[in-house]
Design a protein around this nucleic acid. Structure first.
Lengths: 208, 208
DNA sequence: GTCTATAGAACGATAGAC
DNA sequence: GTCTATCGTTCTATAGAC
């Protein structure tokens, strides 16, 4: 196989470092050092550090969005009105799956998602595109059918709750290495999250 | 009333800016400008930018921790085994309440919490002290009594879920101003969160 | 496409006058 | 306790040789 493209190596290095130290905490020098490339290569291939970030974000987010859409398609092929638990699983699962195979990118991916989600930097807020909004809207409609008594505002609050739990979970797991006994495996966290969130989504509407 | 202490004005400005732009995204110059103070005042009053951050964090987190502890005391005074919903409310409520009165610090406070929670910067990880761990342990024990079938690992996962939902919620609300119709009030979000989280915490244990 | 070299700006910290 | 002035560092971006 040909040696990996410099551009790809920069993307890999940037993804790792942005996830670990945030956008502002990562210098272009650190990225190119890790990629074994030259300082000027970022400017050449991406234009600027900010444009490199959006390339990294797209590479991480796009497959997740696609998997969420495909999961919903699969559910809707079975029944026109999927149950809440199925919707939660289809929406949440891809957030826990490794976006790409081969490395330990799972924890790093979620870490990056939180870094994106929580970073107040303006540059970090470019992760929602039309595709993300479309998938979100489709899920919102499906949840609405499964939870007819819920107001759209409260439903939207709950969907953000899913994102919050999925995003924050593995970050903390990554921050503090397994404290004692058996470290819960990633798939355990995934199942716990689905249990937790399916119950939460199924809660009766809040009475004003 | 005497003019506000320079030290306090620096704390206020730093809290606002750290919440809005993160630690690394905020320069000491921006803080002192906003505080109407001199650049050197940060070094004089706090020693360094990092020590200023821990002062800001403590001022925000301490009252929340205290309120959580007091809420648990109140519950335990009524009954030795408080119900899940009561525990969720006592734990979650202070995360939504304005830490201090008078300004719009509510949204800013939660924003800061997420900035702390999600920021990979080493300096940002100093927010948990002995007091936070003690309160967390007391709640964990109380939840364990109310949910005897749940493994400690899954319980801890769920407690982190509470923190995730509480922290992320108002950030997003703050990021995108009310999109259409009636902007849900802060207290609505609080009630929605308690509904959502009480159901989530009460879910039966995940079957392996 | 990849490199060296550097411009130009912003940063945190601090010395020392008042 | 507050200020000015500045030191030394680090950053992104880019010009220009190869």
């Amino acid at each position: 196989m040909a040696p990996i493209d410099t551009r790809t190596q920069i993307l890999d290095a940037a993804e790792h470092l942005f996830a670990e130290r945030g956008f502002r905490g990562t210098s272009v020098r650190a990225i190119t050092d890790r990629a074994g490339a030259n300082l000027a290569a970022v400017g050449y291939h991406f234009g600027s550090k900010a444009e490199l970030l959006t390339a990294v974000i797209r590479r991480v987010v796009d497959p997740i969005t696609a998997a969420q859409g495909a999961g919903l398609d699969r559910l809707l092929a079975e029944t026109a009105d999927p149950p809440v638990a199925g919707l939660v699983e289809a929406f949440t699962g891809p957030l826990f799956d490794d976006a790409r195979a081969g490395d330990e990118s799972g924890a790093r991916t979620s870490r990056l998602i939180v870094a994106i989600f929580g970073d107040p930097a303006e540059e970090m807020r470019s992760w929602t595109g039309p595709a993300e909004e479309a998938v979100r809207d489709r899920y919102q409609a499906a949840f609405q059918r499964a939870l007819p008594g819920l107001s759209p505002d409260e439903l939207w609050f709950r969907i953000r709750g899913i994102l919050a739990v999925a995003a924050v979970d593995r970050v903390e797991a990554h921050n503090q290495p397994p404290p004692a006994g058996c470290p819960p495996t990633a798939s355990a966290a995934r199942h716990w999250a689905i249990t937790f969130l399916a119950a939460a989504m199924s809660a009766p509407p809040t009475t004003a």
